[in-house]
Each structure stands twice: as C-alpha cells, then as structure tokens.
Design a protein around this nucleic acid. Structure first.
Length: 579
RNA sequence: GGCCUUGUGGUCAAGCGGUUAAGACGGCGCCCUCUCACGGCGCAAUCCCGGGUUCGAUUCCCGGCAAGGUCACCA
C-alpha cells in the first residue's frame, strides 16, 4: 500500500518537517538533576483536594530541584471547557503558594508553548501524518454503534474488550476499501497500529511505586479523533516530549494506560519521561472507600476550604504530611524553617490510597493558626470576612484596636501557652462574637443553680473595672463565700459536701451572664475589653429577665418591681427621680 | 471478568530477617486549672489469611483473600 499517498489523502497539505520541532523546542538548559514537571488539567475549572495533592507534589519536586513547573491546558475535549476556568485554577493554586514558571496565562516564557492543546493541532497532525506514512497508523471508519456492538460481543464472550488484533476491523482494510470509504465521505479516526503483545511484560521503574510490571500494549488506540484533534494519549506524548518534561507525576488512574504511552513514545522515536503515579485520595463511604470524585464530592472542592476559612498553610502542611511520610517529623523538629527547605522526594510518597482525615487537618489548623500573631490573625480574618463573612462580622473590624485586644486574648498571646480554640476563620468569627454583640440566648443559664441572681447581685455590688485581675478574683471569692460556695478549690475538693459548689461555679454564672457561653478565655480580661458599663448592662439585663420570670410566676403584676431592680443594679436612680 | 496496584492499631504511618512493632490524629482516663482551650502523664487498640524458606518471619518466596484503579473518538 502506498502509505505516503494515503497520508496525503487523510491529512492533505504541507506540514513542517518533524526535525523543525526538535529545533523549535530544544532540550532545556537546566542544571543537572533539575526536574521539569507540569500540571495538565482539563479546563473544567474544578480543582479538588486530589488535584492539590498532585499540584503540591509537582511543585515541590520541580522547585526543590531547581527545575520548572508549567501549566498546560488539556482542552482536547470541547465538552469540558468552562469559561474562566484557567484563571480559576491559577487563583486557587496561588492561594496555596503554588506558582508556575511557565504556562497558560502565566505570561512569562513562551518558548515551549502554546500551552493550550487546541493551539497545537498542526504539530500533532504533522506527527500523525508521519505515522501514517510509516504504516504505524491507519484510518478507522467504524461507527460508534459498531464499536459498542463489538464491546458487547467481547464482554459476552468474556474476552478483553477493545480494538485490537482480529477485532481491529479497519486495521487491514485494503487500499481500495479505504479510498471507497473516503470517497463516500465517511468520517474516520486515526488509530495506532499496535505492535505489542500483552503476554510480554516489562519491568518499569515508577518514581513513586518502585518496580512495576507492565504488559505491552496491543490496543489500536485512537490517536486522532474525527474532529482532527488528538486524544489525550497522543497529545501527552507529543507535549511532554517537546515541553521537555522530565518527570510526569500523575494520578494512579493513569497507570492502566501506561502501556499505551510507552508504545506511543516508542513509535514517535521519543525517549520516555520518568513517571510517578501517586495514590488517589479516598473517601469513606459506608463500608467501602472510593476515590474522590469531582461529581460526587463537592465538599472536597478547594472552594469548600476557602469558604470555611481554613488557613491555607494548614491545608498545605496537612497535604505535605500525607504526601511525604517523613515530613511530619521534620516539621516537628523544624517548626520555624520555611516549608521549602524540606527535602521532598517522590520516593517517599505513599503507595497506597489515603483516606482523607478531617480530624488531622483540624488539628494542624489549630496549630498553624495558634502560631500567628494578633496582626496576622486579624488580617487573615479580615480577608476571609470580606469575602465570606456576614455584614455583622465585617463590622467587627471597624474597631481595629479592640479587635487586636480580642485576638490577643483569644489566642492566648502573652500567656504561657497559646490557646487553640478554633480551626477556621468562620469558627473564629463565631467564637469572638460575644465581644461585639450581646448573646441572644441564655439556654445554658437556665440550667444554673437557683441562687444565680444573688451571685450576680453581689458581684455587681463589688465590681470595679479598675481592679486588677488579682483583686477582681479576690472579690469573686468573697461573692462565693457569701453564697455558700468554696472560695478555694482545694477546700471544695477536700470537702465537697460542705459547699454548694466552688468559685468555679460562681465564675460560670458570671461567665454565661456576660458572654452567653460556658467556656471562654479569661473572664477578667473579657470584662476589661467589654468595659464596665457593658458588663453591668449585660448582667443586669439577665437579672431582670429572670427576675421577671420569677415574679410573674408568683406575682404576675410584679414586672414593675423587676424593672426597678434592674435600674438599681445598673446604678441608675429609681424611676421618677430621673432628671 | 482481564490487566495493574496496594494490604502494619479507627485514621496517617515508621520499621523491611531477631524490636517491649516508633510517632502523629482520634478515643478513654488522670493531672494542671475560675470554665474552656493549651500543656503534661498514662491507657486501650495493629503486622489480611494459609503454606513454605529459615534457628527465627511483620519483613523473603508461593498461593489465596480483600480493597482500589482501569478497560471511550473523557482527560
């Protein structure tokens, strides 16, 4: 058969000489050991945690070795295209400090571009044409229906499915038949004429998994689709060769098509890059676990973490601990070194699927957040609130000084130990709410001892915001004693039956009265930040509220009395004497 | 079903011929303490199964089993 004529008929016109591409994309001038890695997403714009895994691994390996990380867009499938996706990907990754050296929309070095596969169509076709000329590729006129039927037949006969060997109908079409189909205007794809034998296996070294055995490929895979655009497999071979990728880190799901890629690189006369197939991130679902899927797991999109207000560095640290098993220990020993100094290696990457562990992430988040200073925390929270916070929350930042004091307290800055109360920005904002808004519910309060009113009253009698924390606490102890609570914890613990409770219980009443919460950082400091008026009002409001309930039970008309009590506790003159 | 990969506590995992089988998260308990958080101490919990090889296997070999991936003109 005249392959040359066939190639001309299939892909008419002049294409650049293949050697010209070698010149156009020369080997990169990089120091020894430098790795060129890439991220090659399809333009759906959807990035999830799994993608971030691969992204961080690629980024670390490239930059750790003094190499290059680039972004290529695999847009060979039009159906996957989403507007603004590339920008979204870049932005999402930037949030985690992943910066590209080259690539789509990066605008730095264009030597190895274009970075959109659709813009590389001519080059792909030039190589396809060459393969046809050599007899290594052929046109296939099978329809979708025929292929489906073939697959069903193979399945029924329990044979390996696919287009190979005797099932590759168009593989040995005569010249006459081919031209007849062509003349009839039948659409066609170009398939690789595979020369492999799956019974033959080769040992192959994977950068992550180590030695693996792979069978030879015998599938006559489609390399050029009927729209003239290559399939992933073919574009991968061309692009990673000419973009001079040295190490392809990609998901484990690609392992199965490695035989195809090996044959393709061979047919094209390209040296194979090194591969590292990383395990996928799994999700527990009932009894079983499965790979995270874009479709089913929207909660694992990166957007979810941004919305919740996870600290980006925390997410990164967590992923690094999963990615390289020795990272955690290193980080523990070198908490203050830049993450970049860790010697990340592909060999240390896990071989088996990893279950995503939110508890662990949360633990790391608390740690990372607690290492911030008040300014750092403020700007992190402010940025988050600007995008995701409520209007009320954004309002907290109006009083910058107060916010700084609040954060200093809530983070335990200046104390012996840092506090770790919250995991995310959204949690933090809820946590500090009582500094800016009065509590709406006092449900916790209702469960408190019945003499709470007396405790509050006694407290307000002696309370003075000028007191230092020592004095304040001494006074609190006095209130405790007056109400039959132990002033000293030791006393209470020694003879619990002698008391109604301890200072702790007294403090709890006041804590809930001022903050609406049973658990908070140091109460004295909270009162300092709130100011005397606000503290008195909050406690008095509560006293009124409950005395009102109390009186209405025994004496429904007693609301006026309660109101008086309220004014009195605020230090206001009785009604009527007001000027 | 074929092919490939992987099997150490609930999770992430060190270890890779002889160990009391690290550590971290989570759980539980205690201590510290005005609550919580932090911190400290402690406890429970693991080598998928069966054969070999070996003086000795979690570690090596074989066979099962289980889990995951993949079998498109999607990437």
């Amino acid at each position: 058969m005249d392959y040359k004529a066939l190639a001309e008929r299939l892909l008419p016109g002049d294409y650049p000489a293949l050697e010209s591409y070698e010149k156009l994309y020369p080997p990169r001038d990089l120091p020894a050991g430098a790795e060129v890695t890439r991220l090659a997403p399809s333009p759906t714009g959807f990035i999830h945690l799994g993608n971030l895994f691969a992204a961080i691994a690629n980024e670390r390996i490239a930059h750790r070795s003094g190499g290059i990380l680039y972004l290529r867009i695999e847009d060979t499938d039009l159906k996957r295209k989403v507007e603004g996706a590339v920008e979204a990907v870049i932005k999402a990754l930037d949030y985690f400090d992943i910066r590209f050296d080259e690539g789509a929309e990066i605008g730095t070095d264009e030597t190895y571009g274009p970075w959109y596969q659709r813009q590389r169509a001519t080059m792909y076709r030039a190589f396809v044409k060459h393969l046809i000329e050599e007899g290594r590729a052929y046109p296939c006129f099978c329809t979708e229906a025929e292929l489906t039927a073939l697959r069903e037949e193979q399945t029924a006969r329990k044979e390996v499915t696919g287009y190979y060997g005797k099932y590759a109908k168009c593989r040995d079409l005569s010249e006459e038949e081919i031209y007849k189909n062509l003349d009839a205007g039948k659409p066609f794809v170009i398939r690789l004429r595979s020369m492999g034998d799956p019974a033959v296996k080769h040992t192959f070294r994977d950068a992550i998994k180590g030695d693996i055995t792979v069978p030879e490929n015998d599938q006559d895979v489609v390399i050029l689709k009927s729209d003239g655009i290559p399939t992933y497999h073919f574009a991968h071979a061309i692009d990673d060769h000419f973009m001079r990728t040295t190490l392809v880190i990609r998901g484990e799901e690609w392992l199965a098509s490695l035989p195809i890629h090996i044959e393709l690189f061979g047919a094209l006369g390209f040296a194979l890059p090194r591969y590292g197939h990383n395990c996928s991130l799994m999700k527990q679902e009932g009894e079983t676990r499965r790979k995270l899927s874009k479709r089913k797991d929207p909660e694992l999109s990166l957007e979810f973490y941004r919305k919740e207000g996870y600290f980006p560095r925390a997410v990164k640290v967590y992923i690094l601990t999963l990615l390289n098993s020795n990272f955690e220990e290193w980080y523990r020993k070198n908490p203050d070194l830049p993450l970049e100094e860790f010697k990340f290696t592909a060999a240390k990457m896990s071989k088996s699927g990893t279950l995503f562990d939110l508890d662990k992430l949360n633990d790391i988040s608390k740690d990372e957040l607690s290492r911030l200073d008040a300014e750092g925390m403020l700007s992190f929270l402010a940025d988050w609130a600007k995008e995701f916070g409520t209007e009320e929350e954004r309002g907290y930042f109006a009083d910058r000084e107060k916010m700084l004091r609040v954060l200093t307290l809530c983070m335990g800055i200046g104390g012996k130990k840092r506090r770790k109360d919250f995991t995310t920005a959204s949690q933090a904002m809820k946590f500090i709410r009582y500094f800016f808004a009065r509590p709406e519910t006092y449900e916790e309060f209702r469960a408190l001892p019945y003499d709470r009113a007396s405790v509050m009253e006694h407290f307000l009698e002696s309370y003075c915001s000028a007191d230092d924390s020592q004095t304040w606490f001494e006074k609190l102890k006095q209130v405790a004693e007056r109400n039959g609570y132990a002033a000293e914890m030791k006393d209470y613990k020694a003879n619990p039956e002698k008391y109604k409770g301890s200072v702790a219980d007294v403090a709890e009443i006041l804590r809930i009265a001022t903050t609406g919460k049973a658990n908070t950082p140091d109460l004295w400091t909270i009162m300092q930040i709130l100011g005397e008026t606000e503290v008195r009002e909050r406690i008095a409001t509560l006293m009124w509220k409950f005395s009102q309930e109390w009186y209405s039970e025994i004496e429904p008309s007693a609301e006026e009395m309660a109101r008086e009590l309220y004014r009195e506790s605020l230090g206001l003159p009785p009604k009527g004497e007001n000027k």
